[in-house]
């Protein structure tokens, strides 16, 4: 691994972000990444966060048109409430703060505690949970569907609404709508290596793949002999469509898990596009790349969001962050 020691990987990365992105304020000691111009008068601020290891999520999405602040935790470990309280206090203009929280027990608990503490300080907080992963089928007997690729859609689209000046309840409603209209399915071709463990988080022999993985190096629900890109696309897209059943055009995210080359991701996207065409689902916008990763895991996920006019307009709105940047 390209590290100094496991204990400092998060702080080291934050120091690097600070050096590479002078347009951000990076508080390495307290672990918050902020828009340099925050708080922006009259604007709702989006604050997100989660375990590290999913880069560019969330710090790479801080900037005009998306997040006002991000709170990185240890690798695959949610941040602590102190971080979110500090971030909320730094970015709140008085218009309120929307917490965007991926549905994992740790993230939910720490953001809940942070919301209580921030409200005690007079900050208005709303929270939206992202839970788009259709691989979790039995949510009655689990911690519920996980937040994965749709987090990018929620942060981009709700962030654009906030940038336009929409009030908190409106930004919250849009974020909720995007989540409700989004579904994901992920596949791993290899396990990932956490710095603390120094070895693979689960044992996946070459020639096999895991279907229905999350983004924390946890094994999936089913293991199969290796499939082709086209076969994986059939399986993943159908799993998503079975649950989403879109009646119109979709936003499509083909996301790499960290160790799969763009060459393979674009080839996979061609297959995703083929399956969607066969199923009669038009793709309004597509994004291909490594956005919601799982350290050095090989594999990919597909996220589809059933679009409408407002979602498309907000998707196309300008965004200026380290990882997403267009329209200005």
């Amino acid at each position: 691994m390209l590290i100094n020691v496991p204990e400092t990987v998060v702080a080291d990365a934050l120091r690097g972000m600070a050096a590479a992105h002078p347009e951000l304020t990076v508080d390495v000691e307290h672990r918050v990444v902020l828009r340099r111009d925050a708080p922006v008068a009259g604007r709702v601020a989006l604050v997100s966060g989660g375990g590290s290891g999913h880069e560019p999520l969330h710090g790479g999405f801080v900037g005009p048109g998306m997040l006002a602040a991000a709170c990185p935790g240890e690798v695959f470990t949610s941040p602590v409430p102190d971080q979110m309280v500090r971030a909320a206090a730094a970015v709140d203009s008085g218009a309120g703060v929307l917490f965007v929280v991926k549905n994992y027990t740790g993230d939910v608990l720490n953001f809940e505690m942070a919301a209580e503490l921030a409200e005690d300080e007079g900050i208005q907080i709303a929270t939206v949970l992202v839970n788009d992963d259709v691989a979790v089928t039995d949510s009655l007997y689990t911690a519920g569907r996980r937040g994965t690729g749709a987090t990018l859609f929620v942060e981009k689209i709700a962030g654009a609404a906030a940038e336009e000046g929409a009030p908190l309840e409106r930004v919250e409603a849009i974020a909720r709508r995007v989540n409700e209209r989004s579904r994901s399915f992920g596949v791993a071709l290899s396990a990932c290596t956490t710095p603390a463990k120094g070895g693979p988080t689960f044992d996946l022999p070459p020639g096999e793949l895991e279907l229905g993985i999350g983004i924390h190096g946890e094994p999936g629900r089913e293991r199969r002999p290796m499939m082709t890109s086209g076969e994986i696309a059939d399986f993943a897209v159908d799993a998503v469509l079975e649950d989403l059943r879109p009646s119109g055009p979709v936003l499509a995210l083909v996301n790499g898990m960290g160790a799969t080359p763009l060459l393979e991701l674009y080839g996979f996207h061609a297959e995703v596009q083929r399956v969607l065409t066969e199923r009669g689902v038009p793709v309004a916008r597509a994004l291909v790349g490594n956005y919601v990763t799982s350290l050095d895991m090989a594999g990919c996920s597909v996220t589809l969001c059933e679009a409408d006019e407002e979602i498309l307009r907000l998707w196309d709105a300008p965004v200026q962050t380290p990882a997403l940047r267009w329209g200005r």
Binding site: S78, P81, D82, L109
Partner: peptide, 11 residues
């Protein structure tokens, strides 16, 4: 709560 993170911190 202030140092662990994850679910185990709050729990």
């Amino acid at each position: 709560i202030s140092t662990v993170g994850g679910a185990s911190g709050p729990l």
